[in-house]
């Protein structure tokens, strides 16, 4: 692949699943695994603290459309504090990302 990142011409022909991240902030202990594993990096730390005194992940409104419903956050969370519901339509905005 050439080194310059060119915009992909037919990107809009591709659709990816769209997920909705549900966060149960009270369960979170701030281990950051979900942020680490999120391939599109849609999660961010909260500015406030949960009642345990931890920062917890939040999804910025601008980032919502980038959740691809891969469920990595759900699977890695040790405290069942985060899960994803998949929207029926494939509407998430495709991004050309490579995690590995």
């Amino acid at each position: 692949m050439p080194p310059v990142k060119r915009k992909l011409f037919n990107l809009d022909q591709y659709q990816v699943p769209r997920g909705k991240v549900q966060i149960i902030s009270e369960r979170c202990k701030g281990c950051s695994l979900c942020l680490e594993y999120c391939p599109n990096k849609v999660l961010a730390w909260s500015t406030d603290y949960n009642f345990k005194g931890y920062r917890y992940p939040v999804l910025e409104e601008t980032e919502e459309k980038y959740c691809i419903s891969c469920r990595f956050c759900e699977e890695v969370c040790p405290d069942f504090a985060i899960y994803v519901t998949t929207e029926p339509e494939l509407t998430a905005k495709p991004q050309s990302t490579q995690r590995k």
Partner: peptide, 14 residues
């Protein structure tokens, strides 16, 4: 969920 550039399209297509 993953879109990358297609080698066959020489990096111009997805």
């Amino acid at each position: 969920p993953v879109v990358v550039s297609n080698e066959f399209d020489q990096g111009l297509g997805a």
